[in-house]
Amino acid sequence: TEKEKEVKRLAKERGLSPDQVRELAQRAGFSPDQAKQIADEFA
């Protein structure tokens, strides 16, 4: 999704850790499970 792409782009730009990616995703409105899946891509 657009929102997911945006979260991943920000995460890459900022060099976020997987935990930070998960927090960012949840703040963007993703469920905890979705946020974990997104964060796992950065693990």
Rank of each mutant, 00 (worst) to 15 (best):
T1R: 14
T1Y: 14
T1S: 14
T1M: 14
T1I: 14
E2T: 11
E2F: 10
E2I: 11
E2K: 09
E2R: 08
E2V: 11
E2W: 13
E2M: 13
K3D: 08
K3A: 13
K3I: 12
K3V: 11
K3N: 08
K3P: 07
K3F: 09
E4W: 15
E4R: 15
E4S: 14
E4L: 15
E4Y: 13
E4V: 15
K5T: 11
K5V: 09
K5F: 09
K5W: 10
K5P: 02
K5H: 09
E6G: 06
E6I: 12
E6H: 10
E6R: 08
E6A: 13
E6P: 01
E6N: 10
V7G: 02
V7A: 02
V7M: 06
V7Q: 00
V7W: 02
K8H: 09
K8Y: 03
K8L: 10
K8S: 03
K8R: 12
K8Q: 05
K8N: 05
K8W: 03
R9E: 08
R9M: 05
R9V: 03
R9I: 05
L10A: 13
L10K: 13
L10Y: 04
L10T: 14
L10W: 03
A11I: 03
A11L: 02
A11N: 01
A11P: 04
A11Y: 01
A11Q: 02
A11S: 05
A11V: 01
A11F: 02
K12W: 08
K12I: 06
K12A: 10
K12N: 10
K12M: 06
K12G: 09
K12P: 04
K12S: 11
K12Q: 11
K12F: 06
E13Q: 11
E13D: 07
E13W: 02
E13F: 03
E13I: 12
R14W: 10
R14H: 15
R14T: 11
R14P: 04
G15T: 04
G15D: 07
L16A: 04
L16W: 05
L16D: 02
L16M: 11
L16Q: 02
L16G: 02
L16F: 07
S17A: 09
S17Y: 06
S17N: 14
S17V: 06
S17E: 07
S17F: 06
S17P: 05
P18R: 10
P18M: 09
P18N: 07
D19C: 11
D19Q: 13
D19S: 13
D19W: 04
D19L: 07
D19T: 11
D19P: 08
Q20C: 12
Q20H: 06
Q20A: 10
Q20E: 14
Q20I: 04
Q20V: 04
Q20S: 05
Q20R: 05
V21G: 00
V21T: 08
R22D: 07
R22Y: 15
R22L: 14
R22Q: 13
R22G: 06
E23M: 06
E23D: 12
E23Y: 02
E23L: 07
E23G: 05
E23K: 06
E23N: 07
E23W: 03
E23V: 06
L24I: 07
L24M: 09
L24R: 02
L24T: 04
L24S: 03
L24Y: 03
L24W: 02
L24K: 02
L24N: 03
A25Q: 01
A25Y: 00
A25I: 03
A25M: 04
A25R: 00
A25P: 01
A25G: 03
A25K: 00
Q26M: 14
Q26R: 11
R27H: 12
R27F: 08
R27L: 15
R27Q: 15
R27M: 14
R27E: 15
R27I: 13
A28R: 07
A28M: 15
A28G: 04
A28D: 04
A28V: 14
A28Y: 15
A28K: 07
A28Q: 10
A28I: 14
A28L: 15
G29F: 00
G29V: 00
G29W: 00
G29Y: 00
G29A: 01
G29Q: 01
F30I: 05
F30H: 01
F30Q: 01
F30V: 03
F30C: 03
S31Q: 06
S31W: 04
S31L: 07
S31G: 10
S31H: 06
P32N: 06
P32A: 08
P32E: 13
P32K: 07
P32S: 07
D33Q: 14
D33P: 06
D33G: 10
D33E: 15
D33W: 02
Q34M: 12
Q34C: 06
Q34L: 08
Q34R: 14
Q34I: 12
Q34N: 05
Q34S: 07
A35Q: 03
A35L: 02
A35T: 03
A35M: 01
A35R: 00
A35S: 07
A35C: 05
K36N: 12
K36G: 09
K36T: 10
K36I: 11
K36H: 09
K36R: 13
K36Q: 15
Q37I: 13
Q37T: 11
Q37R: 15
Q37V: 12
Q37C: 09
Q37E: 10
Q37D: 07
Q37H: 11
I38V: 04
I38K: 00
I38C: 03
I38S: 00
I38Y: 02
I38G: 01
A39F: 02
A39Q: 03
A39Y: 03
A39P: 01
A39I: 02
A39L: 03
A39M: 06
A39H: 01
A39V: 04
D40Y: 07
D40H: 12
D40V: 07
D40F: 07
D40P: 01
E41W: 07
E41K: 06
E41M: 08
E41L: 06
E41R: 07
E41Y: 05
E41F: 05
F42A: 05
F42D: 02
F42V: 13
F42T: 05
F42G: 03
A43M: 13
A43G: 08
A43V: 13
A43K: 10
A43P: 04
A43D: 10
A43H: 09
